[in-house]
């Protein structure tokens, strides 16, 4: 049995120890906001917060995540909530599929950097692909969240 702490709740699951955290979260625990995009850690659709850091959950074994605090897009985090509000205000999403991953990466950035520069934002967010091409709005939404926090 593997015990995972996801969004403040403990889930004991019986899975192959090699199963990536992504699939444990989606198919076994049932939080489907975390997306499969590539399975190779290339696109960032599967980002979750693990002890505050953004990780590609498709590259992390569920067993390795035992004892860590996992937050998904459905979870609670002050920066995540602020960013979600800004995302709506800037009408960021098009198809919306990559946006949970984008939001988690942005949350981790703001968790570790109170005042990221535009370059910091670009560097952090380059882990995530948006095929619809919403980058400009993502950047604006992050910048505004930073400004709001610092005002």
């Amino acid at each position: 049995m593997t015990t995972l702490n996801v969004n403040g709740k403990k889930h004991s699951i019986d899975v192959d120890p090699d199963m990536p955290l992504l699939w444990a979260i989606r198919d076994i625990i049932g939080y489907t906001g975390t997306k499969y995009g590539c399975g190779k850690g290339l696109c960032g659709s599967c980002m979750v917060l693990m002890d505050g850091q953004a990780i590609n959950s498709c590259q992390m074994k569920a067993a390795t995540a035992e004892g860590k605090k996992i937050i998904t897009i459905e979870g609670e985090n002050k920066n995540l909530q602020l960013l979600q509000e800004s995302w709506v205000k800037h009408n960021v999403p098009q198809c919306g599929f990559c946006q949970p991953g984008q939001l988690i990466t942005a949350t981790a950035l703001l968790n570790s950097n109170d005042n990221p520069s535009e370059r910091d934002i670009e560097n952090a967010m380059s882990r995530n692909i948006c095929r619809c091409g919403t980058y400009q709005r993502i950047k604006s939404a992050i910048i505004e969240t930073v400004e709001l926090k610092n005002s």
């Binding site: 997306k35 998904t72 897009i73 979600q84 995302w87 709506v88 009408n91 960021v92 919306g96 946006q99």
Partner: peptide
């Protein structure tokens, strides 16, 4: 007009085929 589904995209509750 703000996209009517945007809040659900941002909170992860929008159900795609995979979900």
């Amino acid at each position: 007009l703000e996209g009517i589904d945007v809040p659900n995209y941002a909170n992860g509750s929008a159900v795609f085929g995979l979900d």
